[in-house]
Every structure is written in structure tokens, then in C-alpha cells.
Amino acid sequence: MKRDKKRVEGEVWSEDRLAEYLDFKTYDGTDPDFHCLYRAYTRMNEETFARFVKLFREKGRNVEAKNLEGETLADILRKHTQASDYLAVLEG
């Protein structure tokens, strides 16, 4: 996430709003599952992200999807010092 962007805390995420994050499209060949997960990570707090990942898995989506560089979201999060809670959700 860019330093000039702040995650909105206390935002209400309904089930319908979470489901909207399953429908993001990509135009550069990035795996849509990776793109959806990454967008969720950059916009949701840990609790909301956990709810999203649960829904993501229930819909049969791939948490091991890779970006164009061949990395999963978990690979990227291992490099982020403050992402351990998010990583635990993906690996859980």
C-alpha cells in the first residue's frame, strides 16, 4: 500500500460488499484470484480480511494463485514485517 494511502478503520463490510471483491477483473494477465486477494489485503483490516478469505475459499477460489512474477500473496506477505496476522489467515 502506498504511504499516502490509509486503510479506513471501523468501516462496515457487509457480506455483499465482501462478495464484490470476488469479481475484480484484471487486464494484464494477472491471475484473477491473486488480484482479488491482493486488493482485499490492501484495503481490509485483519478481521475483515479473514472473513473475506473464508468466503473466497468457500467459493472454491485459489489462495495459492500467483502474480505475474510467480509469487503468491503469502510469499509477498512473508516480506512484510507487519503482515503476520494476514499471513496466518492465508496459511490457516
Rank of each mutant, 00 (worst) to 15 (best):
R3V: 08
R3P: 01
K5M: 11
K5A: 10
K5S: 07
K6G: 04
R7S: 05
V8C: 11
V8L: 08
V8G: 00
V8W: 05
E11T: 10
V12E: 14
V12C: 12
V12D: 06
S14N: 08
E15D: 14
E15A: 11
E15M: 10
D16K: 08
D16Y: 08
D16M: 10
R17M: 12
R17D: 14
L18A: 06
L18V: 03
L18I: 08
L18Q: 06
A19K: 13
E20W: 05
E20D: 15
E20F: 11
Y21V: 02
Y21D: 11
Y21W: 10
Y21G: 03
D23I: 12
F24Q: 05
F24V: 09
F24A: 06
K25G: 07
K25Q: 15
K25E: 11
T26V: 10
T26K: 06
G29N: 04
G29Y: 07
G29H: 09
G29M: 09
T30P: 04
D31F: 05
D31W: 08
D33M: 01
D33Q: 08
H35R: 09
L37R: 05
L37E: 05
Y38E: 09
R39T: 14
A40H: 02
Y41L: 00
Y41N: 04
Y41S: 00
Y41V: 04
T42C: 15
T42N: 07
T42E: 09
R43L: 04
R43D: 03
M44Q: 13
E46W: 01
E46M: 07
E46A: 15
E47G: 11
E47N: 09
E47K: 15
E47A: 14
E47R: 12
T48P: 03
F49E: 00
F49V: 09
F52T: 02
F52D: 04
F52G: 08
F52S: 01
V53M: 03
L55A: 07
L55W: 02
R57Q: 13
E58T: 06
G60S: 11
G60P: 02
R61C: 12
R61D: 05
N62T: 07
N62S: 04
V63R: 03
V63D: 05
E64W: 08
N67R: 11
L68Y: 00
E69K: 14
E69G: 01
E69N: 14
T72R: 07
T72A: 06
A74Y: 10
D75P: 05
D75F: 05
I76P: 00
I76K: 13
L77I: 13
R78F: 06
R78T: 02
R78S: 05
K79E: 14
H80G: 08
T81N: 10
A83T: 07
A83F: 09
S84E: 15
S84H: 13
S84C: 02
D85V: 09
D85F: 03
D85G: 15
Y86F: 13
Y86L: 07
L87H: 02
L87I: 06
A88Y: 07
V89S: 09
E91I: 10
G92S: 10
G92T: 12
